[in-house]
C-alpha cells in the first residue's frame, strides 16, 4: 500500500463525514502508516476460494 500524502489523507478524512478538527486530523495522519501496515497484513495474499469466518444464517434467531 503506497504511503498517502497529506493532501490524499485530507480527502480520505473528508470522506469519513466525521467532524474532525485540524489537531484530530494531524493525530490520525501520524498513525495512518501504522494502519496501512495492519490493513496490508490482514489482506495478505490468500487462496481465491478462502471463505470468511462469518456465516449468514437465513433462519433468524
Amino acid at each position: 500500500m503506497p504511503p498517502v500524502t497529506r493532501e490524499e489523507f485530507d480527502i480520505l478524512a473528508a470522506q469519513t463525514g466525521l467532524p474532525l478538527s485540524q489537531a484530530q486530523k494531524d493525530t490520525l495522519f501520524d498513525v495512518y502508516p501504522t494502519l496501512q501496515k495492519i490493513l496490508t497484513t490482514a489482506a495478505a495474499p490468500m487462496p481465491r476460494e478462502a471463505e470468511p469466518s462469518l456465516i449468514f444464517y437465513p433462519e433468524v434467531r
Binding site: 490482514a42 489482506a43 469466518s53
Partner: peptide, 27 residues
Amino acid sequence: FRDRIALGAFMSSADYVQAMRRRRMLC
C-alpha cells in the same frame, strides 16, 4: 476512544471482508 475508533472510518468494506477471510485461516 474517539481517535482509536475514528480509524474505522478509514477502512473499506473490502478490508473487513479480507480480515474475515484471513480469520478463518487462522482459526
